[in-house]
């Protein structure tokens, strides 16, 4: 099976976010691989191990970290990587999808995998917009795949642990929530090898346009002081107060 996996750099969720008008202040923002994309990559690598074929990873060059992200994926077992553009400004999900649709067109992939969502996709999920652009069937919230003959059986999660299985004719696009197995780790030495392997290709593209028809007019951090009554002091004070709260709730 020849598989493309779309990777996306998202603002590091552990970082404190600051705003600049109607966007994040991106000057000092660190980026990491979107957590669900890591699962998409893992599922892709597992499918390749089962069926043969190849995994090619794609990412837009929207952050310095993207190159490292692609090299890490190659170190984990992807055969090739394509970095689309360099130093691009952020672009909405529709704009990203349009770039991927164009880039994937020639690839003749059996399967395109992407993370089920990214935390900034206000205008929709890239995987499914790509499916629409390529005219392919898609299933989102996928938590496992089994290769079949000209098709793939996918497990989609609904809620409350309920899942359903589908047979999806190939080619198709899947939005992966969780891989069958936890994403693999890779040694730094392997990433260094990947950096020297020449498997990563820089593809020149123009800055994509926003295409969503949706304009963000304001962004806010949740109001401070709204919500929880904050316990002051150290861990001892915190434990004392929580014990008191447990007693007040009648569970202690």
């Amino acid at each position: 099976m020849n598989i493309a996996v779309l990777l996306r750099a998202v603002p590091d969720p552990v970082e404190e976010l600051e705003l600049d008008g109607a966007d994040l202040d991106r000057d000092f923002l660190g980026y990491v691989l979107n957590e669900f994309d890591d699962h998409a990559l893992e599922e892709g690598l597992l499918l390749k191990e089962e069926t043969g074929g190849s995994v090619t990873v794609y990412a837009l060059g929207m952050a310095d970290e993207v190159e490292q992200m692609l090299h890490t994926a190659i170190a984990k077992g992807a055969d090739a990587g394509k970095k689309l553009g360099d130093d691009l400004d952020p672009v909405d999900a529709h704009g990203q999808a349009a770039v991927f649709v164009e880039a994937l067109g020639e690839g003749n992939y059996d399967l395109v995998l992407s993370g089920v969502q990214a935390s900034d996709e206000i205008d929709g999920q890239v995987a499914m917009l790509v499916a629409a652009g390529l005219g392919l069937p898609h299933v989102s919230v996928v938590v496992g795949t089994t290769p079949g003959d000209g098709s793939v059986r996918v497990t989609k999660e609904y809620w409350a642990g309920i899942t359903a299985d589908y047979d999806v004719a190939l080619p198709a696009v899947l939005g992966i929530q969780t891989a069958r197995e936890a994403p693999r780790y890779v040694a730094v030495a392997r990433i260094r090898q990947a950096q020297e392997s020449g498997a990563l290709e820089d593809v020149d593209i123009d800055q994509p346009d926003n295409m969503s028809g949706v304009t963000i007019t304001d962004m806010r951090l949740p109001d401070e002081g709204e919500g929880a009554e904050m316990i002051e002091g150290d861990e001892e004070a915190a434990a004392d107060k929580v014990l008191e709260l447990l007693q007040a709730a009648g569970v202690r």
């Binding site: 499914m128 917009l129 989102s140 989609k156 028809g213």
Partner: peptide, 23 residues
Amino acid sequence: YTSVGMDVGNHVAAATSQPLVSY
């Protein structure tokens, strides 16, 4: 914005060329 709605909403927006607003 559920597992079911994600499949439907994205497709409908793309198929009818309408903006989609998520979350």
